[in-house]
Amino acid sequence: MPPPNGFRSFARLISPTISDSKGLAGPDNRSTSALFESVGQVTMHSDLTDKNRTTIHFRSSPYGAINHGHADQNAFTVGSQGSALLISSGVYDYYFSPHAQAWYRQTKASNALTYDGGIGQQAERWYAATGKIRAYMDGGDFTITTGDATRAYDPATIQRVLRTLVYLKDNLLLVHDDASASKPVSWEWNFHTQEAASAAGGPQGMIAVQRGQAKLCMQQLAGSPLTKLAQTDQYPVNPSTSGWTPTHHAVWSVATPGTSFESLVLIDIGCQESSKPVVQRDGSALLVKVRDREFRFEAGKLPQYR
């Protein structure tokens, strides 16, 4: 299994494919994923030519949470069939509004990690509250990327926050979290939707999200058990504008505080996958076999794959 530390395949901007009598045409084998390293964003698509494609955005940026920036390092969103399924929540009413300060710009408003009742990343910190894309690789049938949001959290409490996304085209997304703290904290896995999510309950319970014809199913496969699910459609402070539509905000959390947190969540976009990944322990590492691929996750290290 090759160690891909720092693995990456830099994105190239390619014009849309064209064809005419002179035979002018773009490349047939365009990548469906891209790394934009300077701003710390990775974008992954199932198919660039399909208007109903799945699109995943992942952010871990060197620009901190100041001015119009949000405290959302290591956050991601998922859309499919023209609908947003996992969203970044909140409403822009006006700059630095009460709603923006209490919710819109906070970590808990994004699909990211918080702890102890919604404590997230440091707001209004340009150089301190930063993230970084540590690794990126487009392997054709899959894309893997790791973000490091450690610097974004309070250094007196949080020691490490790594998140790896593995997108197995065109419908499976693995989300692996690796975090540690200097004292026991109650870790929280936040996600936001336009329609209320349904849950079967328990650490192996399935959570379903649907918007129109688009849907996804989420299930924790391994790690610190996420056994508590709380969901609301309320904001702590409402936007000052009128006509906004409520969205739904869920917190999936551990029952027992701990100094370390590991979680592997499977997101099945379309809820059609018949076979689950095979997950097993290999010493201190987590080994995941899915389809014809194998991924290895270990605390404090970048993932490996083959």
Rank of each mutant, 00 (worst) to 15 (best):
A230E: 15
H248D: 09
S253L: 05
Q220V: 02
A255Q: 15
A255T: 12
C271L: 08
D268V: 06
Q234H: 09
F261S: 04
P246M: 06
A250H: 07
S274C: 00
T256E: 15
P277S: 00
A255L: 10
D268N: 11
K228H: 11
G223T: 06
P246E: 07
S253G: 05
P257R: 05
Q280E: 07
G258P: 04
A250W: 07
Q219C: 03
V265I: 15
V251C: 12
L229Y: 07
Q280V: 03
S240G: 14
L226Y: 10
A222R: 05
T232C: 07
I267G: 02
V237R: 05
T245L: 13
V254I: 10
Q220G: 04
G223P: 10
S260H: 14
S260C: 12
C271F: 02
Q220I: 02
P236R: 05
L221W: 11
A222D: 13
T227V: 14
S263W: 00
T259R: 04
D268A: 08
L266Y: 04
T259I: 01
P246R: 13
V265C: 14
V265D: 13
V254K: 01
S242H: 11
H249T: 10
G243E: 12
T256N: 13
Q231G: 12
K276A: 14
T227C: 11
S224W: 00
A230W: 06
Q231E: 15
P225K: 06
A222L: 03
T227L: 13
P236Q: 06
Q272E: 07
H249V: 11
S263P: 03
P225M: 09
F261C: 05
E273L: 00
Q219P: 03
T245G: 04
Q234A: 12
W244K: 03
D268M: 09
P225T: 08
S260T: 15
G258K: 00
P239H: 09
S274L: 06
C271M: 07
R281Q: 09
Q231T: 15
R281I: 01
V278M: 12
S275P: 05
D233C: 06
W244R: 02
K276Q: 11
G243Y: 04
L221D: 11
A230I: 08
T227G: 12
L226S: 14
D233M: 07
K276I: 01
P225C: 10
S274T: 08
T227K: 14
L226K: 14
G223N: 12
G223I: 03
Q231A: 13
G243C: 10
K228M: 12
V237Q: 10
A250V: 06
R281C: 01
E262K: 00
Q272C: 00
W252E: 06
H249Q: 15
L264I: 09
E262W: 00
V237F: 00
Y235M: 09
